Simulated assay, not measured.
Amino acid sequence: MKRIFLIFLCLGIFSCKGDKSKEVEKNTTSNDSIDVEGLLPDGLMATEPVILDVEEANKLVELPLACIETEYPNKLGQTLENKEAIGEPHELHPAFYGCFDWHSSVHAHWSLVSLLKQFPKIERKEEIRETLTKSLSAENIKGELDYFKRNQSASFERTYGWAWLLKLAEELKTWEDPLGQELAANLQPLTELIIQNYIEFLPKLNYPIRVGEHTNTAFGLAFAYDYAKATENQKFLDIIKKRAQDFYLKDDNCPVTWEPGGYDFLSPCLSEIDIMRRVLPKNAFSLWIDDFMPQLKKDDFQMEVGEVSDRTDGKLVHLDGLNFSRAWVFYGLANEYPEQFGHLKSLANEHVAYSFPNVVGDDYEGGHWLGSFAIYALQKSQGKVKE
């Protein structure tokens, strides 16, 4: 009966435009007025959070600056239509050729923009600006656009790289600095193509992809949702909400004890929660999670961190990324619903504390991408990420 009620509730909300969604946002409790740490039950020790301050930012910025123009080693992920399609990474991807693979280069650029926005006086600020200006030129983005328009590139980076491209576009569009607006305009043709790719692909996807790596559908929808909301793209927002509900609204009892997989950097269960937290209003989300993963509401809920045995192994080091992505889901829940999920903030802190000391100075197998995950998780811990 509760499931039927939830479905009708969501359908009713989805069919109403504008005012209803604003009321939902207005009624959502803000983390600004509640001490989340104070909600921890007696006897439960809170792990000290890692704080993203200018000192940490100065360290973290070294990672994207070191890899954005590092062309080799490189994993192209290319389908060749003919021998003429072969080229060096910088020829195929004038903007995003570094950092081992395309998507890592994209979120390395996001890291630079994000850190510079938060810390305008960061030590290497001029180098960051020069790097972004050179890399995200209109000419370079045209080269990226040309690659996506190749016959064999329709599924290139679907949807993980697409999601990070939109996260970069969102970061640039919401940056008031003239450089941000210039680079957002340069990126816009590729941004529009990625949006169109989503709009064409999502209706054809009959079943969500529930894995702990790149093709996870819930992750791809969550970052796309953030972009659509930030830019008030209602058409895009509507299709994301609809497909998320189509895919996940009837889900029950997520088998979280099966996690993590050995190569996971995303949690299939938590990624699903992350998108449903965005698309469902408060009452509907509470009913949904009671069926999907009710143990999260218990004050004594625990989840062991993902343990990394070898950080020189590009797949095994994924588990550091899993710790950060789990943390940002926990922080998101604690920030938006502190009365129900405030206890998860301590668990998020534990996950970050395990992996954060290994980010800077780590082997290139992790260093080319893990910084982005750490930055995003730390932003969520401080409630600095808008959704």
Rank of each mutant, 00 (worst) to 15 (best):
S135I: 00
P94S: 06
L172T: 00
T257D: 14
Q196S: 15
K2I: 14
K149Y: 09
L221P: 05
N349A: 10
P189I: 08
T215R: 14
I194S: 00
Q181M: 09
L115E: 02
K167N: 05
E88K: 15
D19C: 12
F373H: 10
C99Q: 04
G314E: 11
Q78H: 14
E213K: 13
R278D: 12
I209E: 12
L9H: 10
D226S: 10
A185H: 06
K345A: 10
D310K: 11
Q181E: 10
V36D: 07
K204H: 13
K2N: 15
F341V: 06
R210Y: 08
F330Y: 14
W110Y: 11
E304T: 11
H368T: 02
I239Y: 03
G220N: 09
D146G: 03
N151F: 13
S111W: 00
H318P: 03
K229G: 00
N197A: 13
P120L: 05
D320V: 06
D313P: 05
P49T: 07
G12T: 10
G12S: 11
L80E: 07
G314I: 04
L316M: 12
V36L: 12
V36M: 07
Y331E: 05
V211Q: 11
M1C: 14
D226G: 01
N283L: 13
H107N: 04
L296A: 08
G314S: 10
K315Q: 12
L266E: 01
R124W: 01
T257R: 14
E171K: 04
A108Y: 00
T29G: 03
E81P: 05
R3P: 08
D42W: 10
N206M: 12
Y97A: 06
N283A: 13
R243H: 12
M303V: 06
L344M: 09
I199W: 06
Q382A: 12
L40A: 13
S105A: 13
D363E: 11
K134Y: 02
V211W: 07
K241Q: 10
S104R: 07
M276R: 05
D320Y: 13
T47D: 04
I194E: 00
P203K: 12
T133Y: 03
Y354S: 04
C99E: 04
V36K: 10
E91D: 13
L76Y: 02
K121L: 02
G321D: 02
N349M: 09
I239D: 04
V360W: 08
E307K: 15
E56K: 14
G87M: 05
H368I: 03
K2E: 15
R278Y: 13
K134S: 04
N253F: 12
I239K: 08
Y97G: 02
E176T: 00
I86N: 06
K386N: 09
E130T: 06
A327L: 06
D251R: 11
G18V: 12
I4Q: 15
G143I: 03
E365C: 09
A108L: 03
L168K: 03
T312M: 10
E232T: 08
I34P: 05
N323K: 05
F5G: 09
E307H: 14
L370I: 07
E192V: 02
V317H: 01
D363N: 14
I13R: 09
E157T: 01
N74Y: 10
